[in-house]
């Protein structure tokens, strides 16, 4: 393990601290690991592929909806909301 600076952001209104360079998915995992979004029939969904292909990890980031949490690195002060 190497020491890393951390980044603070909010997921569903809750403060989260994750290592710099982590993805938004990793931040969401600390608050709502089992419900990133609701499927079209309302079932909870969370990341599947981890590499930007499956779109199961879509969340709202700073007001923009339908973004892949696994593709976006965390930034200080980011506001992330699950459930699309």
């Amino acid at each position: 393990m190497t020491a890393h600076a951390s980044v603070r952001l909010q997921v569903d209104g809750q403060p989260v601290e994750v290592p710099e360079g982590a993805s938004v998915a990793a931040a969401v995992a600390r608050v709502a690991p089992t419900r990133f979004r609701d499927s079209v029939h309302g079932a909870p969904r969370a990341p599947l592929c981890g590499m930007g292909v499956c779109f199961e990890c879509r969340v709202r980031i700073d007001g923009r909806v339908q973004l892949r949490a696994c593709m976006v690195p965390v930034r200080e002060g980011m506001q992330v909301d699950t459930h699309g």
Binding site: A22, S23, A25, A26, A29, R30, T34, F36, P47, G50
Partner: peptide, 21 residues
């Protein structure tokens, strides 16, 4: 397979590297 907690094998590996706890 749609249950949260089911991922790809490389998928969970990628998530872990991104900081998934």
């Amino acid at each position: 397979w749609t249950l949260p907690g089911v991922t790809g094998a490389g998928g969970l590996q990628a998530l872990a590297k991104q900081g998934w706890p």
